[in-house]
Simulated scan of single mutants.
Amino acid sequence: MSRIRALQYYIFSRLLLAPLMVWTITTVVFLLLRATPGDPVDAILGPRAPEEQKALVREQLGLGDPIWVQYLHYLGDLLRLNLGTSLSSRGQTVWEIVRDFFPATAELAIFSMAIALFIGVSVGILSASRPNTPLDAAGRIFGIITYSVPLFWIGMLFQLVFSVQLGWFPLGTRYPVTALPPAGFTGLFTIDSLLSGDFGALGVSLYYLALPSFSLGLVLSGIFERIVRVNLKQTLKADYVEAARARGIPERRVLLVHALRNALIPVVTVLGLTLAAMLGGAVLTEVTFSWPGLGNRLYEAISMRDYPTVQGIIVFFAVIVVIASIAIDIINAYIDPRIRY
């Protein structure tokens, strides 16, 4: 089988498995939500509401039906791309919640990923280029610490040091409550500020974004540092690298052009997996910094047992991760001719 045919078969098989993965995730979430103790009607009306009123609301929401009937209704709504209506937002649909809150999460994820790549790749290169030295040991320690440190802990530590004690950054939120955010159609304050030419709003947006994005990016940078360090060390021992050195090519060019290009191929693969970790980490970061994103909204929905909102947001996240994973696999297959599927 030729490489093109094999790649086409792989892409087709992944596309067929994508709905199965999303269905599995949504089914598990549906069952777990209903297996946990508590009643969403109590979260809506309060525990002291009359039982007659509770029964009426439960009937209106379909919570009195058997679980298999609720599940069939849930799947039917998903097939119609209907994520449902929030139980705790006064009739607001889940799609409206995604529209309003996801831009903040996307902006945080983009900047955090950029910081994670910059720090992780830089430290990995420095560590691999100086093997068996204190710099190499420091790089390994950095990777271990950032990979294992709790995200919420590092966020609270940064808040305590840089916000409370030093006063350099705000404690949380996305924009000053006394000012109007930049107007635009993307919902990303930095992009909308650039498009409108409002550089003052751009500076304010970056100022409020700096601490939460650096906290999340720093923790995720350990993943890239370990991958770059290990792969770059192996690549620097390859025959074609030794041949480049024998031809008198400067060591800096050998490192950055010949070795690093191949050592970064696994980084592309890990990007898809890191996206899932970033979405999970965004929940903790948004809650810690009171960031008005979709992760924070998910946390509120879980605490209020808002079934449709929790299910809808997780389905949305699952679709993003599945699409990103497939895209990363395809890109990786094209940039690495050694891959065979």
Results as ranks from 00 to 15, higher is better:
D39K: 00
L126M: 13
I110N: 00
E59A: 14
L135V: 15
Y299C: 07
I323G: 05
L15V: 10
G120D: 06
V94P: 08
W168Q: 03
I323S: 07
P250Y: 02
A43H: 14
L271N: 01
R245H: 08
P170Y: 11
V315A: 15
F30P: 03
L298W: 09
A55K: 12
Q60C: 04
G187H: 02
L236S: 11
L72V: 13
A301G: 10
R174F: 01
V319E: 08
A106F: 13
T288H: 09
G76W: 03
V98R: 06
T85P: 04
Q70V: 03
L271D: 01
A179C: 02
L275S: 05
L32E: 03
V57I: 14
V268W: 00
A183L: 09
V57T: 03
Y299W: 15
A128W: 04
V69C: 03
P103E: 02
V322P: 06
P150H: 06
F316T: 13
D192L: 01
Q8A: 15
G155D: 08
G281A: 11
S112D: 08
R305M: 12
T93W: 05
A263T: 07
T85V: 15
L256N: 06
G139N: 04
R130W: 12
H258F: 13
Y307D: 02
P250F: 02
G167T: 04
F316D: 11
F102I: 02
N296P: 05
G295V: 10
L16A: 09
G139R: 03
I119N: 01
R99M: 13
I125Q: 09
R229W: 07
F142I: 08
F118W: 06
L7Q: 14
G76C: 02
W68K: 03
P266I: 00
R226C: 05
R99H: 14
Y9Q: 15
G143T: 07
R90N: 14
S303Y: 13
A55R: 13
A55Q: 15
